[in-house]
Amino acid sequence: MAREKTWQGVIAVADLEAAWVTRVTFGPRNLAIYDTPSGIYVSLALCNHGGADLCDGYFDGHVIECPLHQGAFDVRDGKAVAAPATRQMKVFEARVEDGMVQIMV
């Protein structure tokens, strides 16, 4: 039977890079945590186009750009917003609770 999803803490808000993207290893996953003007968002850290680490990319507002080919995604919903990225990236439902970024997994 599939385990029910729960909120799990991944990093303290105080440890995030302000207005930028922070890399976090969480269990078997590499996550990218985004500090944006409208809150915290979380996605898988690897670009689904070329496999590079998005956490080394350029981050502006709500858009993360892959450092290898500059394909880009909106971190709020994972939608690809600039070629060569064409597929939606995996994002996680996220919230801040007691100073911790939590994701629903």
Partner: peptide, 9 residues
């Protein structure tokens, strides 16, 4: 765990 590819960066 999936690893990022190695790039010059």
């Amino acid at each position: 765990m999936a690893q990022a590819i190695v790039t010059p960066l």
